[in-house]
Write a protein that binds this DNA or RNA. Sequence first.
DNA 1: CCAACAATTCCACGATACTGGAAATATGGA
DNA 2: TCCATATTTCCAGTATCGTGGAATTGTTGG
Lengths: 120, 120
Amino acid sequence: MESNDAVRRLSALAQDSRLAVFRLLVRAGPEGMAAGDIARGLGLAPNTLSAQLTVLANAGLIRSRRDGRSIVYAADYDAMSALLVFLMDDCCQGRPEVCAPVADLTARIACCEQPRGALS
Amino acid sequence: MESNDAVRRLSALAQDSRLAVFRLLVRAGPEGMAAGDIARGLGLAPNTLSAQLTVLANAGLIRSRRDGRSIVYAADYDAMSALLVFLMDDCCQGRPEVCAPVADLTARIACCEQPRGALS
DNA sequence: CCAACAATTCCACGATACTGGAAATATGGA
DNA sequence: TCCATATTTCCAGTATCGTGGAATTGTTGG
């Protein structure tokens, strides 16, 4: 991943409404949400939301597909992962203790792995 | 972590020079680097860099301490971890396959864990 | 074809951010 | 104390961004 792309993605997320949109889509999962539902859910004007969605899409953080009259947006998990790695790459060259806080929390992100859980 | 803080941190990182500074400090480790060395390393004017460092510090992403005539800056790994978790929280409620790309890459971030490595 | 609905594009205003010159503050050494 | 070094603060000019009203495109159903 290039630095320019990282800045574009970070800029896209560095705004109240867009961050809320992205986190909503992260929670919504791969099926995504229609633009109208996002607007209603977050209380945003349709045209304003449209501009924000364009920014997120240009950054590669979300994808869109048409479904009837609606356009459905979904988070791009691969793009987000690439950004996270870019940010923390080489965070500790040979010294495990440095990245410990990051490593600990990645376990929380990987919520569904449940390595010790008995679920499913 | 609050949404306002997340936006502040993302905004701080959403700029060429500041992103370069932060990544440089991530690589520099907990000992950090003097402001002058950062400026020379990245080819930035001292006053411009100072403004950028202030933004990163206000966002909580870096910390500073005085060492003689220099002021030494270091990345705050805990703050960064909190941001990463905030971004991807609840990324997959009960469906492990959704977060797989993220979970895979967290292994790359946790570079020093080397669970299968024989080093040290 | 026409009307209703969903979303986007166009446009302009107000606010915010990045940059660099010049001056100011703080530290260390003679 | 005086000077050089290291960094910050002040200030203003330029550029960019977020927002919302109005008009436009695309889709569905009668």
